[in-house]
Design a binder for these strands. Sequence first.
DNA 1: GCCAACGTTGGC
DNA 2: GCCAACGTTGGC
Length: 208
Amino acid sequence: MAPKRCWLLKSEPASYSIEMLEEDGRTTWEGVRNYQARNFLREMKVGDRVLFYHSNAEPPGVAGLAQVVHEAYPDPFAFDPASKYFDPDSKTDDPRWSMVDLGFVERFDEPVPLPVLRADPALEGMELLRKGSRLSVQPVTERQYDRVVQLARERFAGIPAAAPKPRARGAAAPKAKAKPQAKAKAVTKPKARATKSAPKSKPTRTRK
DNA sequence: GCCAACGTTGGC
DNA sequence: GCCAACGTTGGC
């Protein structure tokens, strides 16, 4: 089996939050209208792990985990003139935009805020932390992924950089527990924001 | 609300 | 192909 990759996806919680994903169990990730982000979507494989990031939130931060449950396929919203994701230049015989399906994995008890990510030396170089980084779909290394998860656990436990628990020789490494996958109900709800190449339709602004 | 950073568009 | 104008993202 191909090794699983790790990603970070941004969403405005007012548009689509980790809480909504938890409730839905799974969702479609339409609406990405940026070529670089699209290309990353197309690289995704079922089982890839996803950091679910809340942008334009207070505070912005990684709010939980998801996983890829369906690889990339043409984004039909690009063909729908009524959709805010409509792109008249995307033809059905040559779809320009792609989307994936995401499954809920876990909602952090508390999001890991952006300033905490920035302050962590282990996350130096992470795309999200680059000045001016706007990419809504971005790869992260496994090391970065694991570190963010660790930060989430530590913060809620209220302990500083915990020393690893001693483990009996030969004992299996503890697995990060994932909450049971909620029932797979298909939802169709625009949420991923991205640069519009389509002339109409503004993404929902969440505040100002 | 401000604005830096970035992507896209279109005139030339 | 250049690049100015414009629109968007998203932290602050």
